[in-house]
């Protein structure tokens, strides 16, 4: 009965929410996982190149995190900015609205490094755990 729910590319809804709206079956698992690492993911995609909100989300999605919704990205950016990990600057645009770019500042880079280490060690632990139990994919 549960039919696979495909997100149309036009929607910026996170997939679980789109599907929840359409079928009542939710992919809670990925969302729960994402919640914990969204900060790290946003910091990571800003490591090499500054970006504005919509652009950042596009990078996250093209990296494979297609569960991410626009509100999550915007909210995370606001929080990281308030925590003093990001700097912003506005770039005027001729054709469209001005864009607010976000960039990592030194505190942000430091945070990315530390969180990245924690994540790697955690991921390794989980991998080992799953391998040991014979549940590796």
């Amino acid at each position: 009965m549960p039919s696979p729910c495909r997100t149309p590319s036009a929607t910026l809804l996170p997939r679980w929410r789109y599907c929840a709206l359409n079928s009542s079956i939710t992919d809670v698992d990925t969302t729960q996982l994402l919640k914990g690492v969204l900060d790290l993911a946003v910091l990571a995609v800003l490591k090499d190149e500054d970006g504005y909100g919509y652009d950042i989300m596009r990078r996250l999605r093209s990296a494979g995190l297609d569960e991410i919704g626009d509100a999550s990205v915007y909210g995370t950016l606001r929080r990281l900015f308030q925590a003093g990990l990001l700097t912003t600057y506005v770039v005027p645009s001729e054709s469209g609205p001005h864009r607010k770019y976000y960039a990592l500042n030194p505190a942000g880079r430091d945070q990315l490094l530390r969180s990245g280490k924690i994540w790697r060690s955690f991921a390794t632990t989980m991998d080992t755990l799953l391998d040991d139990k014979g549940m590796a994919a």
């Binding site: 036009a10 929607t11 910026l12 789109y18 909100g53 626009d70 509100a71 915007y74 995370t76 609205p97």
Partner: peptide, 27 residues
């Protein structure tokens, strides 16, 4: 910015404002 890229109304692309607010609150 969102509106400048892509087609469709905000409601279609972002879902109902209440849900957007909920997600924003969590994030």
């Amino acid at each position: 910015e969102v509106a400048a890229e892509g087609e469709g109304s905000l409601h279609e692309r972002l879902g109902p404002p209440e849900a957007y607010a909920m997600e924003l609150r969590n994030a």
